[in-house]
């Protein structure tokens, strides 16, 4: 899966977890900017991302997954490791 495909699918994930976000807001979304993104939101988002991408996030990873950009970068890193 290339970076563009990852971002597209991740946008879909964000759109169902944070239904109030507009398409324009999703790429810049973070725990700081999205009111509904609390610890529960993180667990839900991580659950959706894990099922959608077939990956598993360690506890240390989850602590870092605090924005759309960071999740996209993490997914890209996982994809690169799997491809290697």
């Amino acid at each position: 899966m290339n970076p563009s495909e990852i971002r597209t699918q991740l946008e879909e994930c964000f759109s169902v977890v944070f239904a109030d976000l507009t398409a324009e807001e999703i790429p810049t979304a973070s725990m700081e900017t999205v009111e509904a993104w609390d610890s529960l939101g993180t667990l839900t988002l991580v659950g959706v991302v894990e099922q959608t991408f077939g990956v598993s996030a360690e506890i240390d990873d989850i602590a870092e997954l605090v924005s759309f950009e960071k999740i996209a970068a993490w997914l890209q890193a996982v994809a690169s490791r799997q491809a290697a």
């Binding site: 169902v16 239904a19 839900t44 959706v48």
Partner: peptide, 12 residues
Amino acid sequence: MQLFEALKIIRD
């Protein structure tokens, strides 16, 4: 049902 699908049903 996948979590994504569940959330989509609720959102839609």
